[in-house]
């Protein structure tokens, strides 16, 4: 068994809206797989099909070797799910929710539970209605991570967390990765997050997979935005292949650079003398704008 998730040509329609339009997704056992797509691309719908909550109108899907629709209850013992926009019962405390979800799945590790609660700085005695979005997400994450399951399905798990907690989340996932006995599907619309955590990733758009592979396979997609303040005049930047949209006004330069051209571009900057430098990874939206609008135009 090498594939935890194997979906091919998934189709899902909601009335006239086609949410999934021939989506492919393969996740290997033991890997952390990024599932990337802008809002409305179909990430949540895919995960709901994988969970047997929704039935696909077309295509083929296997999860942990079973049929997610027919074997839902049996398969769910082996996985944990963190929904994207999670809310809890207003009169249950966070601690009660964690225990309940764990018990429903067949038990959870009490030591790991307490560890995670401390790690995420959660007060488990508060009632569901008083938690902020970030805290609700923490509760769902702790319930999932403390369960003894082989597959984690995380739908945009960090969208409500503050930067400090996002960091804690990354650490925990990296720890999971080192343990190596769990498969993680991590959906996100933030490229940087997926880059930091995932072995492989699948990028989807409008219900279709547009790219899949390891990060280095997909390096050609990433282009960094650089802004620098220089001490002297700079020469030759414009002539480097892979530097785009260069602007230069009295000692300040700004440009986008392809991954392969990063080194020559930085060398050129250093030669001119750098006073300050800011580099920014592209957002997913920029990436799509750059790569795929061009594809469509040429089609």
């Amino acid at each position: 068994m090498t594939e935890a998730i194997d979906a091919e040509g998934l189709i899902k329609r909601f009335g006239k809206v086609t949410a999934l339009d021939g989506l492919d997704l393969q996740v290997r056992t033991g890997e952390v797989h990024g599932f990337l797509g802008p809002n409305g691309a179909g990430k949540t719908t895919t995960i709901r099909v994988l969970l047997g909550l929704m039935r696909n109108d077309g295509g083929r899907v296997r999860l942990l070797g079973g049929d997610p629709w027919a074997d839902a209850t049996r398969l769910h013992r082996r996985l944990a799910y963190v929904p994207g926009d999670v809310t809890f019962w207003p009169n249950l405390t966070g601690g009660e929710v964690i225990d309940l979800l764990g018990r429903l799945r067949g038990g959870l590790d009490p030591r790991r539970r307490d560890d995670l609660i401390e790690r995420f700085e959660l007060d488990p005695r508060k009632k569901g209605r008083t938690y902020s979005k970030g805290n609700r997400q923490k509760v769902a994450l702790i319930a999932a991570l403390a369960s003894d399951v082989e597959l984690l399905l995380l739908d945009e798990p960090t969208s409500g967390l503050d930067p400090l907690m996002e960091e804690a989340f990354r650490e925990v996932i990296l720890q999971e990765k080192r343990r190596g006995d769990r498969t993680v599907l991590l959906s996100s619309h933030i490229l940087a997050e997926v880059e930091a955590l995932c072995d492989r990733l699948t990028i989807i758009r409008d219900g279709r997979s547009v790219e899949t592979g390891t990060l280095s396979d997909l390096r050609h997609l990433t282009r960094t935005t650089i802004r620098a303040e220089l001490t002297g005049p700079v020469n030759g930047l414009a002539s480097i292949a892979g530097v785009h949209d260069l602007t230069s006004t009295d000692g300040r330069v700004a440009f986008d650079v392809d991954h392969e051209a990063l080194e020559p571009a930085l060398k050129t900057l250093v030669a001119a003398g750098v006073r300050s430098l800011v580099s920014q990874p592209p957002s997913l939206e920029e990436l799509f704008l750059r790569h795929y609008t061009r594809d469509e135009a040429s089609r």
Partner: peptide, 24 residues
């Protein structure tokens, strides 16, 4: 009325869908 804190752990009753339904 509702600002009180609750238990940090679930009681034994809260371990099935029936237990949850009772709470709800």
């Amino acid at each position: 009325l509702a600002s009180r804190l609750g238990p940090a752990h679930a009681g034994a009753g809260l371990s099935s869908s029936l237990g949850l339904a009772w709470r709800l």
